[in-house]
Computed example of a mutant assay.
Amino acid sequence: MTAATAEKGLDAAAHAAVTIGRPAEALRTLWLDPETQAQIWTHFATVVPLDGRTADWRTHGPAGGDYRWRTEIADSGPDTIRWSSLDGADVPNTGDLSFRPAPGDRGTELHLNVRFDPPGGLLGDAVSKLFHIVPTEIVAHALYKFRALALTGEIPTTEPQPAARKGGADR
């Protein structure tokens, strides 16, 4: 990290896209369901919905760091959902999800953009190590989980299941 980056903070942006064979309105409704966010971001953060517009986020970073922020849906229309972190966030961030008709009448294209802006100094250095490595993977994995939820009603997991043989709770 250069001195200029440490003073300004790191700006880490990520983009991912996916096509889902469902109408945009159904996908928009599912994304705005507060419980959906808690499910699709589990690989990255614990998300606790407060209401239909705000949620508390918590993630663990390098050297045992614990980072928290609150997001609020800032602008929501039929084709785009936008959100941003509120003042006082350990990791200021913004995001938007846009819905476009997929070619060949194959459903809806979703384009997810997230921008993290960790602060400078020692905190910023630790946070930038967390986000600089994998921001695109974080966003792509969230869309993968969302797609699975939209198409099947559940998110696949490799966690042992209570009724599973050889690896489940029935050993």
Rank of each mutant, 00 (worst) to 15 (best):
residue 156 P to Y: 05
residue 157 T to L: 04
residue 17 A to C: 04
residue 64 G to M: 06
residue 25 E to G: 07
residue 53 R to M: 14
residue 95 G to T: 06
residue 3 A to C: 04
residue 23 P to Y: 11
residue 99 F to I: 03
residue 18 V to D: 10
residue 113 N to A: 13
residue 126 A to I: 02
residue 128 S to P: 00
residue 73 I to F: 13
residue 142 A to V: 07
residue 108 T to S: 09
residue 48 V to E: 12
residue 23 P to F: 11
residue 156 P to V: 01
residue 36 T to P: 00
residue 67 Y to I: 14
residue 55 A to C: 10
residue 162 P to K: 04
residue 86 L to E: 13
residue 8 K to D: 14
residue 127 V to P: 00
residue 165 R to V: 05
residue 38 A to L: 08
residue 128 S to D: 08
residue 42 T to C: 08
residue 157 T to Y: 00
residue 32 L to G: 00
residue 169 A to Q: 11
residue 133 I to Q: 10
residue 55 A to E: 09
residue 161 Q to G: 13
residue 104 G to Q: 09
residue 54 T to P: 02
residue 134 V to Y: 06
residue 134 V to L: 12
residue 106 R to K: 13
residue 50 L to F: 03
residue 121 G to P: 07
residue 149 L to Q: 06
residue 21 G to I: 13
residue 3 A to Y: 10
residue 31 W to S: 00
residue 34 P to L: 15
residue 114 V to F: 08
residue 128 S to N: 04
residue 138 I to M: 14
residue 41 W to V: 12
residue 60 H to F: 14
residue 47 V to E: 08
residue 52 G to C: 07
residue 46 T to A: 11
residue 93 N to R: 12
residue 162 P to H: 04
residue 38 A to C: 03
residue 45 A to K: 14
residue 107 G to N: 06
residue 71 T to C: 07
residue 57 W to A: 01
residue 4 A to H: 05
residue 53 R to S: 14
residue 147 R to S: 12
residue 35 E to V: 10
residue 95 G to I: 04
residue 34 P to C: 15
residue 157 T to W: 01
residue 113 N to K: 10
residue 5 T to K: 09
residue 48 V to L: 08
residue 103 P to K: 04
residue 83 W to F: 12
residue 138 I to H: 12
residue 125 D to Q: 06
residue 158 T to G: 08
residue 110 L to I: 07
residue 34 P to S: 14
residue 14 A to Y: 12
residue 38 A to Y: 00
residue 33 D to M: 01
residue 68 R to Q: 08
residue 76 S to L: 09
residue 29 T to M: 00
residue 163 A to H: 05
residue 42 T to Y: 10
residue 59 T to N: 13
residue 153 G to W: 02
residue 40 I to D: 05
residue 135 P to H: 06
residue 110 L to E: 06
residue 111 H to C: 13
residue 40 I to M: 11
residue 146 F to R: 03
residue 27 L to K: 03
residue 110 L to K: 06
residue 146 F to V: 02
residue 30 L to S: 03
residue 1 M to W: 05
residue 42 T to H: 13
residue 37 Q to T: 11
residue 147 R to F: 00
residue 104 G to I: 02
residue 157 T to M: 01
residue 87 D to Y: 02
residue 30 L to G: 02
residue 55 A to I: 05
residue 138 I to T: 08
residue 69 W to N: 09
residue 29 T to H: 01
residue 16 A to I: 02
residue 112 L to M: 06
residue 69 W to K: 10
residue 109 E to Q: 15
residue 129 K to Q: 01
residue 29 T to W: 00
residue 162 P to E: 06
residue 40 I to Q: 08
residue 104 G to C: 07
residue 39 Q to D: 10
residue 28 R to Y: 03
residue 10 L to I: 09
residue 91 V to R: 14
residue 122 L to I: 03
residue 119 P to T: 13
residue 17 A to Y: 04
residue 67 Y to H: 12
residue 20 I to D: 07
residue 138 I to G: 09
residue 8 K to T: 15
residue 21 G to L: 12
residue 70 R to I: 04
residue 40 I to V: 15
residue 8 K to N: 14
residue 100 R to P: 14
residue 163 A to F: 08
residue 24 A to F: 02
residue 132 H to T: 09
residue 107 G to E: 06
residue 58 R to M: 15
residue 140 A to E: 12
residue 37 Q to R: 12
residue 19 T to M: 09
residue 93 N to G: 11
residue 97 L to S: 05
residue 60 H to E: 15
residue 22 R to Q: 15
residue 130 L to N: 00
residue 147 R to G: 12
residue 99 F to K: 07
residue 16 A to G: 07
residue 61 G to V: 07
residue 73 I to M: 10
residue 50 L to P: 01
